[in-house]
Design a binder for these strands. Structure first.
Lengths: 196, 196
DNA sequence: GTCTATAAGCCGATAGAC
DNA sequence: GTCTATCGGCTTATAGAC
């Protein structure tokens, strides 16, 4: 079966993503990934040169899907920019109540690899966060919100804080608190009746 | 030397703290901690029953020192509550520029142990964050800032977001952005000329 | 209380057959 | 492209001497 190549590769990447997110990068062995994918370790090493490459590709595979979720939540919410931003946090809060929730894979991976600042996976995480920030700044700007870049950066830090706190406090109260804060910050700079 | 007991224990805990913070919980072996403390592994296991206990005690040993830092930075800043809160972030930003900076040990440990929600170390992290939140709420309330509890929680999430982003973005811009956001949120609720 | 020595198994990665 | 088999080293934790 010469053309099964990409199927096998995808199966390995899917298994890696599931396990890395559920248990953490260093807690999951290459053996475990191979077993979950239904291949031998030797096959895994045929498709990926190292565990580090597997980690990097796992995060890369989550980049667009995650961004699309944020866009969907933002677009689906009626109302002004403040309410749309708040909706993102409300949806994250709901997701955080799911039993399989384990926070943000990008942040958790960066935390695990804090002693390897040059690791490719961290650069992929940085690019992901940057894309979110840039997208949000564009949305705010097109709605004539003041200081869109500064505000988008503040909201991103707030969202990362929300992700981080879910790992310490099981309930979603802190995510909702972050959402309230984000809405306040946007409302201060939003045009219209409640603006300046 | 019957009374060297607590010295040895302290040496082990110091070494553990240094290594766990610098390289991460799972990246550091018990062998490495024992070697750094200048004792054998058997001695380490005489003083601590397991690596998990060592992890928990490492975080416990950081609880009060970290809280004292926050208090010191807050108290040393002249001006109103908004400026005092901002000062905490400014000092964290400065600390994050140090080459040995690796973020918040409590959050990084929680991220590494995300697959073990009942781990004692996570409870210690939760208690630490809660103490910070309660202390800050008290400071805000005594300065007649409105909704002190809600605000303290928002600021804590912002601070955790600042910690988290330093692991992805090397520079301290995001910490400063968080500090600006925190100051804005306090200023909105602070009494006086700029208040309602 | 601290030591030497070791258990028993898992780690990432590779050799070579087919 | 996938397999079986294995390397050398590291993992947490323990046995037993002193």
């Amino acid at each position: 079966m010469a053309r099964q190549e990409s199927n096998t590769r995808t199966a390995i990447l899917d298994a890696a993503g599931r396990l890395f997110y559920a248990e953490g990068i260093r807690a999951v062995s290459v053996d475990a990934v191979a077993a979950a994918a239904g291949v031998t370790k030797r096959t895994l090493y045929y498709h990926f040169t190292s565990k580090d490459e597997l980690i990097a590709e796992y995060l890369q595979s989550r980049d667009q899907p995650n961004l699309n979720l944020f866009r969907k939540w933002f677009d689906a919410e009626a109302g002004g920019a403040a309410d749309k931003v708040h909706a993102i946090f409300a949806h994250v809060a709901a997701a955080s109540r799911h039993p399989k929730w384990k926070g943000c894979g990008f942040l958790r991976t960066a935390a695990e690899l804090a002693n390897m600042p040059g690791h490719p996976a961290i650069a992929i995480g940085a690019a992901h966060k940057r894309k979110f920030e840039d997208w949000l700044a564009g949305e705010l700007e097109s709605r004539s919100v003041l200081e869109p870049k500064r505000l988008a950066r503040q909201i991103q830090v707030l969202l990362d804080g929300a992700f981080a706190t879910t790992l310490i406090n099981r309930n979603s109260d802190y995510v909702l608190a972050a959402g309230d804060a984000a809405r306040s910050l946007v409302a201060q700079l939003e045009p219209g009746p409640s603006g300046s």
